[in-house]
């Protein structure tokens, strides 16, 4: 579906030099030799801090920007050369920009899009009905877009991007500013779209729970380079994040040190509750429970998985895997401690 090879984009900017009337021209590299492929039917989260190059990549994928170098193919097309053909086959939602007509009722925007995308009327009607049903648009189809709430508008935006049945849906920050319920609803809808319709999803986001709920694969970018690419579970293991076994014991006990694979022990309530951080590749939760049970009677146990935020922070701290680009990211100290 998407094939990016050594994709780069730089911009020329001028900035003040400090001396009067002197300006320095310089090249800013927004995307630096990025390569990845996305297969049909995948759901990929494209994440990174502000200014990492996410939006620039999306603009190149959709043919809005021409790459400075490298090659990109989307749906087998060259986005910048065949922009219009490609536009008919993909849907794009820019979370912070509206593709609806501000002054017109929502329904009229949808009609207009039918003509712009040249969708057959029956197909259009069918999809519109489906989205109206699943996203609950009925109550505000005749309301001018300027009067919609953000949550309503986003549902409208997603519908607008889907009416021409795109093979690929690109979402740039789709959940930004939405309340919890609206986020949840949108995620469920997108997950359904991905599994039932096999629509390929690529989404950029800051909300890591979007990725956790929606995307089986995560692509992390920073300073224009790919830091990591893979399923979230694998990245968790790769960056060596510990899982934590929380044991509630029958009575206060001294810290349970010296168990194989455990890197850190924290105790609460006089040692009645102990948090054992362990490395998943050196031991398992089951083995650890057995080991603990030998030392003290257990009342209750639970396992806490590392948060996706921690995974990402650790990735930034580690820097790209290639040696030519040492990790310079100023991460907070707690994530820098060696595992």
């Amino acid at each position: 579906m998407i094939e990016a090879t050594e994709l780069s984009r730089s911009f020329r900017v001028t900035r003040k030099s400090g001396r009067r009337l002197r300006r320095i021209r310089e090249e800013v590299v927004a995307v630096r030799s990025v390569s990845f492929t996305v297969e049909a039917g995948e759901a990929v989260g494209y994440i990174g801090p502000n200014g990492a190059g996410k939006s620039t990549t999306i603009k190149m994928l959709t043919g809005i920007l021409v790459p400075t170098s490298g090659r990109v193919r989307v749906c087998g097309l060259d986005p910048s050369r065949q922009r219009i053909d490609l536009a008919r086959r993909i849907g794009v939602v820019f979370g912070q920009r509206s593709q609806l007509w501000w002054d017109l009722p929502l329904a009229e925007s949808f009609q207009l899009l039918r003509h712009i995308y040249r969708t057959p009327p029956s197909d259009h009607a069918e999809r519109l009905e489906e989205c109206t049903e699943l996203l609950g648009l009925k109550g505000f189809l005749t309301t001018p877009v300027r009067q919609l709430s953000l949550g309503q508008r986003m549902r409208g935006e997603v519908t607008a991007a889907l009416l021409h049945a795109p093979e690929l849906l690109v979402l740039d920050e789709p959940t930004i500013g939405l309340d919890l319920e609206s986020k949840q609803r949108l995620r469920e809808f997108l997950a359904e779209l991905n599994t039932r319709r096999r629509t390929t999803l690529v989404l950029t986001t800051h909300a890591l729970d979007d990725i956790e709920r929606l995307c089986r694969r995560m692509l992390v970018i920073d300073r224009g380079r790919v830091l990591a690419d893979g399923p979230l579970e694998r990245l968790r293991v790769e960056v060596g994040l510990e899982r934590t076994l929380v044991v509630d014991l029958e009575r206060p006990t001294a810290p349970l040190r010296g168990l194989a694979g455990v890197v850190e022990v924290r105790t609460e309530t006089d040692g009645r509750r102990q948090r054992l951080s362990f490395q998943a590749d050196r031991t398992t939760a089951a083995a650890l429970i057995t080991a603990v049970a030998r030392q003290a009677p257990i009342h209750d146990v639970s396992v806490v998985e590392p948060e996706i935020d921690d995974v990402v922070r650790r990735l930034y701290a580690r820097g790209p895997t290639t040696a030519e680009h040492p990790g310079r990211f100023d991460a907070p100290n707690d994530v820098l401690r060696a595992p």
Partner: peptide
């Protein structure tokens, strides 16, 4: 404001539109 990306991402000629 950058909203022009929407105009540039549609299957139309932006000037004609």
């Amino acid at each position: 404001t950058g909203a022009v990306v929407v105009d540039l991402s549609r299957p139309w000629n932006p000037q004609a539109a």
